[in-house]
Computed example of a mutant assay.
Amino acid sequence: MNPKRILIAVDASANSERAVAYVGDILCHAREAEILLLCLSKTPDRDLFPDGATWQASASKQDAEYKEFLARARGSLEQRGVDAGCIETRLVPFTGFSVAQGILGAQRAGGYGTIVVGRRGMSKEEEFLFGSVSSRVVHHARNCAVWVVE
């Protein structure tokens, strides 16, 4: 794993914005870093919508929001001094069960030495009942650093 290859997992939340800003502040003038802004787009459950057209419209709206967020996140890194050539954005359709496993799979496949995730700030009870992506990433990551930004 290459420690200069950094995967920032984002989901268009304020927590993701803080994670991106943190990385930008840390790596403000690094020229040798490679940063991937990764957004796993989980399609909304079809059963929650009255018809296929409404479901498709919702999925398209979600993807548009994610693409807009990725563009803003890239701009945020560039504003903080990160070289534009060092930044890649990727919106990946995700059909798996665990977002954390999707992030870890991308980390292993890309040889990223650092994973950065935002933390939602769940209570211990909520985290126990529903799980937490950041908690799962921390517990299951191997051979890399994990930065959890609150």
Score class of each variant (00 low, 15 high):
4 K>N: 09
4 K>H: 06
6 I>A: 02
8 I>R: 00
12 A>M: 08
12 A>R: 13
22 Y>K: 12
22 Y>E: 13
26 I>A: 12
26 I>E: 10
33 A>T: 09
35 I>K: 06
38 L>G: 02
40 L>M: 07
45 D>C: 09
46 R>A: 08
48 L>V: 11
53 A>T: 07
53 A>S: 06
54 T>D: 04
54 T>Q: 10
58 S>F: 03
61 K>E: 14
64 A>M: 08
65 E>Y: 06
67 K>V: 14
69 F>M: 09
69 F>D: 11
73 A>W: 02
80 R>D: 03
81 G>I: 05
83 D>V: 04
84 A>P: 14
85 G>A: 08
85 G>H: 05
88 E>Y: 06
89 T>Y: 05
93 P>N: 13
93 P>C: 10
94 F>I: 08
94 F>H: 06
94 F>G: 00
97 F>R: 12
100 A>T: 02
101 Q>I: 05
101 Q>W: 11
102 G>D: 04
103 I>Q: 10
105 G>S: 14
111 G>E: 13
113 G>C: 05
114 T>H: 10
114 T>D: 00
117 V>M: 06
120 R>K: 15
121 G>H: 07
122 M>E: 11
123 S>L: 10
125 E>Q: 13
125 E>C: 08
129 L>F: 14
129 L>D: 04
130 F>V: 01
132 S>G: 09
141 A>I: 08
145 A>Q: 11
146 V>P: 01
149 V>Q: 02
